[in-house]
Design a protein around this nucleic acid. Sequence first.
DNA 1: GCGGCCATGAGGTGCGCAACTCAATTCTTG
DNA 2: CAAGAATTGAGTTGCGCACCTCATGGCCGC
Lengths: 360, 360
Amino acid sequence: MAAGQHRRAMTHPIERAAPIARVTLQDVAREAGVSLATVDRVLNRRPGVREKTAARVQSAIARLGYRPDPVAARLARKETFRFCFILPTGTNTFMRILEEQVGATADWLLGQRAFIDILHVDVFDAEALATALEGLDPRYSGVAVVALDHPRVRAAIDDLVERGIAVVTLVSDAPTARRLRYVGIDNTAAGRTAATLIGRFSGGRKGTVAVIAGSLALRDHTERQFGFTQVLGSEYPHLTAVLAGESRDDAAQAQRLTESVIAAHPELVGIYNVGAGNRGVAAALEGAGKARDVIFVGHDLTPHSRRFLLRGIMDAVINQDPGHQARSAARILLAHCTGEPIVAEQERIGIDIFVRDNLP
Amino acid sequence: MAAGQHRRAMTHPIERAAPIARVTLQDVAREAGVSLATVDRVLNRRPGVREKTAARVQSAIARLGYRPDPVAARLARKETFRFCFILPTGTNTFMRILEEQVGATADWLLGQRAFIDILHVDVFDAEALATALEGLDPRYSGVAVVALDHPRVRAAIDDLVERGIAVVTLVSDAPTARRLRYVGIDNTAAGRTAATLIGRFSGGRKGTVAVIAGSLALRDHTERQFGFTQVLGSEYPHLTAVLAGESRDDAAQAQRLTESVIAAHPELVGIYNVGAGNRGVAAALEGAGKARDVIFVGHDLTPHSRRFLLRGIMDAVINQDPGHQARSAARILLAHCTGEPIVAEQERIGIDIFVRDNLP
DNA sequence: GCGGCCATGAGGTGCGCAACTCAATTCTTG
DNA sequence: CAAGAATTGAGTTGCGCACCTCATGGCCGC
């Protein structure tokens, strides 16, 4: 009996299989009682179709459940797309990984008739970034840019959009600009997450938590800091946040800041490194023999931070998957250009928490 | 000067733009000095080509950097694929979300000329699962199955593979079976992660941590438990793991187990719920007025666990993204059938940690 | 040197659609 | 009611490839 039931259940799926034949434009034309040309006019919004006829076509489409075959459409449409990814210069490990991932994505895009160029601009120089955006070749169909929230940059982005070039901001946003979308994490939430982790890991110990800012000029860094101090202040009153200074994403500078904060605060419980330069913080902590003692949370999973996690120097790393972001930006730009829909949920960039045990 | 440099930098990318024209089979044929038919024979491994000629073609391909256009190939190849997703029956919230995501993926696959059927089987019944696998319609080109590590299931999977049907295991693996790939998390690592979170959150408090097993028959559950006790025992000697029993993914049962463990262990520090049924654990904790006091870590982000996190009843949720897994399984099956490469990194399923602050 | 076999060439067809042309049919409007 | 405009039909081409047929050429052994 059980076997019989299973047999029924098994054969069921293919039995009810929809007729595999696709519904094509031909079918729609026949159903609507018009010619292929008219269907084409309706679908591609070409002029010269009476409203009534268009409606007949639309209803035929609905009745048959016609869906244009994206594969055939891409082949027939001869256009190719060219995207520009504007990434920061410098030796920031995360950005180098991001760039590598953009390269890998470019490889994939080749098959989709799209090309990627990479352009480097100093991330701390709003003027340079704006100039680069303003002077961008108008032949680009889309731009992904690690942005700065600055009036000229904003204006330059709006200008590109005005000229019909799709823009997505990557990793760092310019929220008021008319970009298509922001591909990156919610940095305020990331900061809150860091505070929760340090707060919970501290287990009620009283003391101070040092915040090493990256650059107060970078919107994502200030947002992280805001979220962090907000949660630490309200949820963990036994901990006091002190600002150690700006590292400007430089490891040596981060090390100096860490060293002085260790000296000034013997009761140091934790360190939150907002920007890059985890190496410097780790070196300072190890130098002072406090690597085990002080809770250290930072951003971006790199070979370094990975090692620090495994050695117990770092306690948690908050990450935004660079590969995911590169692919997501490319997918969004491409989908925008071809008019295809996107899977919103797939393009959400999550705030990943890594501890020693869930490393990839 | 700076402006001049930027101008150069800007115009650079498109200048060096590769000639947008694709390298086609025509080009390869010309370059190799053979006909299109011969190139086709080489590329599609059709018989009747001398080794020397084939080598000429290969070298022409390499020289020109020819890459078959996947879009055109899909169009020309008339085959369609049909995949079967075998999911557990029951009311398990995670599995219902997974099923929903599989449905969404099916929608996307339609555009890729592939179809998905969903088949339900009792997850706790290895015989039923094996029977279903054995009786599966041989016309399927691929199967994704939430597996059980059981000899008959393993044999059934190997049998499908033998018949040329691609199999991926989903969420729960059968490691020794010859499946193409496992799409899911490393459950041992997930268990270790849970232990680290509870250990760190406990802040040195002495006491016991209750482990509510899901089903000791499910490989993923036992792996989680193993990873958990391993780390808790070696890293957090002040905590003692006690097994509260099997919930069999049932909330009511989980509640009963939690209630008795609370009664038996007044010094309870934390609870790790290995399987489903977080609702039951939460109800028991709230009923005993211990929701804030006891650290509660469980699996799978659902509307329930999400609410528990926000209310502070749960302290962390370990998640495996169901949407990602559904899409990944589909992509892997499809890529296998079309012979296209996959982006390995994209298909890695990560162990997501969620606290109150990094919820999506 | 003949039949036969193997390697290759030439060419066609179709996948589903975009984009276009040109002619034929309708509908307006003065 | 005729001229002109708007609308529609029929058909072609090509995207890059897979898959197929048929013809041709050379080389083999016998």
